[in-house]
Design a protein around this nucleic acid. Structure first.
Length: 161
DNA sequence: GCCAACGTTGGC
DNA sequence: GCCAACGTTGGC
């Protein structure tokens, strides 16, 4: 049974369209430098489903669906002094940070914005709508995942009428 | 641009 | 081990 996650990215740095444009639509999720977020990635299994969230957008929104195609492995950017994600405390023998590879599955029929998520009583417990929730990789329940997908379809249909 | 939330660092 | 200072995230 695949599990469900939400992963944040600033679209000006890396957007869902950027992921779609990659060969094979896959890319490594490097640069996570928060232990809780890292631990979530280390728990990910191949085939887990991901809501691709655009933070810092106006408004912030879920843009598309992705899936995990490679489970956690050492984040090489932490070892590269030239990388903006370089962390001198990491070492090849003891990598401190890990990443997963994800693949774009589909763009949502329309983006689902943070205000909409907040307005949906079914998503009251979803982490992204909680105040002060900054974690860049978050677990999402199966129900929450399904509800976001449903919202994207429903209002999209209504909008086209 | 502001600032709340919160993780991390480092002095003690 | 406490906690103040500091840095970052990210919504607004």
């Amino acid at each position: 049974m695949p599990r469900h996650w939400l992963m944040k990215s600033e679209p000006s740095v890396f957007s869902f369209d950027d992921l779609l444009a990659r060969p094979g639509k896959t890319d490594g999720w490097e640069g996570v430098r928060n232990y809780q977020a890292r631990n979530h990635m280390m728990a990910m299994k191949e085939g887990d489903r991901v809501l691709f969230y655009h933070s810092g957008a106006e408004p912030p929104h879920v843009a598309g669906l992705a899936e995990v195609v490679r489970e956690a492995y050492p984040d090489h950017t932490a070892l590269d002094p030239k990388s903006r994600y370089y962390d001198p405390r990491s070492a090849p023998s003891a990598p401190r940070w890990h990443m997963v590879d994800v693949r774009a599955v589909s763009r949502l029929p329309r983006p689902v914005s943070l205000p909409e998520l907040k307005a949906n009583p079914r998503l009251k417990k979803m982490l992204i709508v909680q105040k002060g929730q900054r974690l860049s990789v978050q677990p999402v329940t199966k129900e929450e995942f399904g509800e976001v997908v449903r919202m994207a379809k429903e209002t999209g249909r209504r909008r086209n009428r």
